[in-house]
């Protein structure tokens, strides 16, 4: 069977201790939370690392707390707990839904919000065994110099595949990191960069503590939609969050967040659309908008052209749901 290579596992019980371990071993260190992404990657020798720092025993990283203005979700909160949390379901239903659609029941019990945000990028040329990658001749993310997704490409375009990221961005979530240099806060939207080899702007010395999400106004509504071949286990092949602000069926603002493209999600603000009615016409218009502005690549394992078409459909359907229309176009209702 695939084996893990030897490494040291540090199991601190305080955040201070954890930071000290990270500082001592950076850059040759990773935080391990649920392990459901990191351990397969280490088994595949896609990630090679000597030190792991576990957050399993850090109490303050677990759980959801509600303040007057925010929900604060500890980075080590299990995805299933997030999906089941009453406060999250009530105030951030798209996030609860996204969490409930990740992986399998076991993965959701193990995997955490922080782990999902930090999920490594995915690509058909990297999520493979050493033999496979050797046969390929490597790639930009794996001991090679060539990109097989974009021939001649100089930057790795492996795909961000975290289900929670689009709704977190749509809700305006802020991430809170800590290191030996202190606490740092940044919008989740700004955490990602266009480099598939290391796409999360969280330094190896840093520990993701929590995300804080402002309680949305009643006029803000978000829908998350994921497409994958199977109803369970699979990573998203299309991943979109649509946020529409507005009362009485008239748009005042919002955004579309498209993921499962490259290393960084595409965020399309809708301010220019303010004043339009939230209806089928808007669904079509926003579908066209993402078609023009976001393009799936042949990186994750499904036909990229279809994924592009599907992305448009999922955006349309999200708008229809928010408009109170049936998901499918009316002409198709039998």
């Amino acid at each position: 069977m695939l084996r893990l290579p030897p490494f040291a596992l540090h199991q601190p019980t305080t955040v201070a201790e954890a930071i000290a371990h990270l500082a001592a071993h950076a850059p040759d260190v990773r935080v391990i939370s649920g392990g459901t992404d990191l351990l397969p990657n280490i088994k595949l020798a896609q990630t090679r690392i000597q030190h792991l720092v576990s957050v399993k025993f850090l109490e303050e990283l677990h759980g959801v707390t509600r303040t007057a203005t925010h929900l604060r979700i500890g980075a080590a909160t299990a995805l299933q707990d997030l999906a089941d949390d009453e406060d999250v379901r009530e105030t951030l239903p798209a996030l609860a839904f996204a969490a409930s659609r990740i992986g399998s029941p076991q993965i959701r019990k193990m995997g955490t919000l922080g782990g999902n945000i930090s999920l490594d990028t995915r690509c058909r040329y990297i999520n493979q065994t050493e033999l496979w990658r050797e046969a390929l001749g490597g790639c930009l993310k794996s001991h090679g110099t060539e990109c097989h997704v974009v021939p001649g490409g100089q930057g790795c375009v492996a795909s961000l595949s975290a289900d929670t990221v689009p709704p977190l961005i749509a809700y305006g979530a802020i991430a809170e990191m800590v290191s030996d240099k202190g606490i740092r806060r940044a919008p989740v939207q700004d955490l990602f960069q266009q480099d598939g080899t290391w796409h999360v702007r969280i330094a190896r010395e840093e520990l993701l503590l929590a995300v804080e999400i402002p309680l949305p106004e009643p006029t803000t509504r978000v829908v998350y939609r994921k497409w994958a071949v199977r109803q369970s286990i699979d990573f998203p092949l299309v991943s979109v969050a649509v946020r529409l602000d507005g009362a009485d069926g008239v748009l005042t603002g919002g955004s579309i967040v498209v993921s499962a493209l490259g290393p960084r999600p595409r965020v399309l603000p809708l301010n220019a659309m303010a004043g339009r009615k939230i209806d089928e016409e808007l669904a079509q218009a926003l579908g066209q908008l993402v078609y023009d502005r976001a393009r799936p690549l042949p990186n994750i394992p499904y036909d990229a052209e279809y994924r592009r078409e599907r992305m448009v459909i999922e955006v349309r359907r999200a708008v229809r749901v928010l408009a109170g229309l049936p998901e499918r176009p009316l002409a198709q209702q039998a």
Binding site: R124, N127, Q128, L136, G137, I233, D234, P301
Partner: peptide
């Protein structure tokens, strides 16, 4: 490009999708 000849596209139980 080099090396793509004859590589299995779906050689894990994640990528080879069996119905759940």
């Amino acid at each position: 490009g080099p090396g793509k000849d004859g590589l299995l596209a779906h050689s894990s139980l994640l990528d080879y999708r069996m119905p759940t």
